[in-house]
Design a protein around this nucleic acid. Structure first.
Length: 596
RNA sequence: GCGCUCGUAGCUCAGCUGGAUAGAGCAUCGGAUUUCGAUUCCGAGGGUCGGAGGUUCGAAUCCUUCCGAGCGCGCCA
């Protein structure tokens, strides 16, 4: 259980009070033992006129308490009326209990924001989680297609970290299959080219991209003519290792352009090292459990396979764990299938202490989920849990028109091209401003527009506007308002927050109070996009309040002849600024002090 | 043929793991704005939540079944 006591927030607090009321009632009315309060929630009602919060306690508990929901609601409501934090309790509809809090509760919520600063909403003491993302093949630079999974995985990792988990960010390097041999042969061509040989057009079946030229040059510089004299079997391991190392450097650079850094780069090849063959070990392990057998598979349906050969082969009993068909582990050439090493890899994660694993994959790998989850179940005896997050395709547009593929680096737009054109912040925010499993349109022209159309700008501008207000306040009212964030917060925490009483101000405070609850839900669901939407809403509410000050001068943040009120409002602005900065930090997007 | 994902306003999408009268942004229409520093703000119209059944106090959400779209479908990673 995560320890939430270090970060009390209003919704958790009220939920605890509702629980207490129910428990008291349970004792009085002799409810059966062991009633589960887990389904009781406290949430903001859809319609604000119902109050500040609503709970479904009576409806959820009615059956077990053997009471009618309405009656039970009345009894719980009666208990809650005695609560010092709660101003009004109503029972409505089928048995909702609507709560209206005393205004002081919202001031207190703001005080919590200021006190906790960048830790507001943070939870401590959670479990170990492994998030594996990107894992692009080391056969070339990253292209736009990789971008979304990279950003998503990174933000999810940050979100879980903020939610108290001990997170490891991991990259699985597919450096063992046939593809990296093709890479090696392609690099060898470039090596011969670097030695002055005319290699002509790159033949079919090789990687044609210019990005392998530096590899060839590096090989020429390091080995001179030596490799050329060798047979392929002799030079291949050397060339392959060099090419993979250089590709991984390039990929790391690409990721750094998005401010993404992994903790662990795990090599697939390391799993099948002679003398320490984890794949063989894993297969033996599953054999001992009876999850592996020699058998035949029916030919695949759908698209016909020309060279289908019916043969006896080593199969993993995936169907015993929810998959549709058993899966082969060894190819006809006696090497392991990708799946076989992937089983060993995930078992290895579990053995390293990760009972919770998250993999981020592209949409084209959707068909692979069941078998991988089956494998995790089998290798961990059900103790390990794998959640696979699929990120859908990104459609790259410019002013609504699909972007033609460039030919600079092969036949794709590189991740670097996109980051260079629109910037890291726009890429990161927009990749997260959509549910991960929905197709995303990414318009290169729109994301750098400075308007409300562009949520990146809109949210960042909210943060900048807050700072603009501080600058003005310093010039007009409080020359000693500190510039340093921590000092400013300390300075503002002495404000008369009870002066914040206008309904629109209270709405803003309520929005701030929800932040920890939103984070909790987003972390539990593995859905970082909720943060992006929350931030947009918060910024929107803040901008609206700012504009209101034009028509209604008494709502301006800076009131020249009322320093006390001004200070309270600056405290509120600070609350907004803090939360915007916090949320943007989790998404990995900068929170600028001014827009340029 | 099978599996996975998705289907919500004219368009692009949210909808807090089952809650009350389904929400934003574009676009359309109507207003406000010589600004604490913008590129804003307020309001209106617009919906059979793909269709049909079911589960229960209650369904966009869960189940079944159709329809439609995308992805995938032995030894490719």
């Amino acid at each position: 259980m995560p320890d939430t006591s270090s970060s009390p927030h209003l919704f958790a607090d009220v939920l605890a009070r509702v629980h207490a009321a129910c428990r008291a009632l349970a004792a009085e009315a002799n409810w059966p033992e062991g009633i589960d309060f887990g389904r009781v929630v406290v949430e903001p009602p859809r319609d604000a006129s119902h109050g500040d919060m609503a709970t479904n306690a009576a409806m959820v508990l009615a059956k077990e308490a053997k009471a009618k929901p309405r009656d039970l609601a009345e009894q719980i409501a009666e208990k809650l009326r005695a609560d010092a934090l709660i101003a009004k309790v109503d029972v409505a509809g089928p048995g909702f209990i609507n709560l209206t809090l005393k205004p002081a509760a919202w001031a207190e919520a703001l005080r919590t924001v200021l006190r906790e600063g960048t830790d507001y909403g943070r939870v401590r003491g959670g479990s170990k989680v492994n998030v594996e993302y990107v894992s692009a093949n080391p056969t070339g630079p990253m292209h736009v297609g990789h971008c979304r999974g990279a950003v998503f995985g990174d933000a999810l990792a940050s979100l879980l970290q903020f939610g108290g988990h001990d997170v490891t960010r991991e990259y699985y390097i597919n450096d063992a299959g046939a593809q990296v041999d093709v890479l090696a042969r392609s690099a060898f061509l470039r090596y011969r080219e670097a030695l002055g040989e005319d290699i002509g057009a790159i033949p079919e079946g090789f990687y044609p991209g210019d990005y392998l030229k530096p590899v060839g040059q590096a090989l020429a510089k390091e080995y001179g003519e030596k490799l050329r004299a060798m047979s392929e079997a002799e030079w291949l391991p050397t060339v392959r290792a060099k090419a993979i190392a250089m590709m991984m450097d390039e990929i790391r650079d690409d990721l750094a352009a998005l401010n993404i850094r992994h903790d662990v780069f795990f090599s697939e090849r390391s799993l099948i090292e002679t003398g320490n063959n984890k794949v063989a070990e894993t297969i033996d392990f599953l054999k001992a459990k009876g999850d592996i057998y020699e058998g035949r598979l029916p030919p695949p349906k759908g698209a016909p396979v020309e060279d289908w050969e019916d043969r006896e082969q080593l199969l993993f009993k995936a169907t015993a764990y929810g998959d549709d068909v058993d899966r082969p582990l060894i190819k006809s050439d006696n090497s392991y299938t990708y799946f076989a090493s992937d089983i060993a890899y995930h078992k290895n994660k579990f053995d390293r202490g990760f009972a919770e694993m998250i993999d981020v994959w592209g949409a084209d790998h959707g068909g692979y989920i069941k078998r991988m989850q089956a494998a995790v179940k089998a290798t961990t005896s059900g103790k390990g849990e794998l959640d696979v997050k699929i990120v859908q395709l990104v459609k790259l547009l410019r002013n609504g028109e699909p972007v033609k593929m460039g030919k600079r680096a092969g036949n794709f737009v590189t991740l670097r091209d996109v980051v260079d054109e629109v910037g890291q912040d726009a890429v990161r925010f927009m990749m997260l401003y959509r549910k991960n499993d929905a197709v995303l349109d990414f318009d290169l022209a729109k994301v750098i527009e400075q308007s409300r159309d562009n949520p990146v700008f809109y949210v960042q501008y909210g943060h900048a506007r807050g700072h603009s207000i501080f600058r003005n306040a310093r010039a007009e009212v409080f020359p000693d308002l500190p510039d340093d964030t921590d000092k400013r917060i300390a300075w503002l925490s002495e404000s008369a927050l009870e002066r914040l009483s206008d309904p629109v101000e209270l709405d803003l405070l309520k929005r701030l109070a929800i932040y920890p609850r939103m984070l909790e839900a987003a972390a539990a669901a593995h859905e970082p996009h909720r943060i992006a939407f929350y931030l947009y809403d918060l910024a929107s509410e803040f901008h609206a309040l700012w504009t209101k000050g034009r028509d209604l001068p008494y709502l301006r943040f800076i009131i020249n002849n009322d320093a006390v009120l001004t200070k309270a409002r600056l405290a509120m602005v600070q609350g907004v600024v803090s939360v915007l900065a916090s949320g943007l930090a989790i998404l990995g997007v900068h929170a600028p002090d001014e827009m340029r």
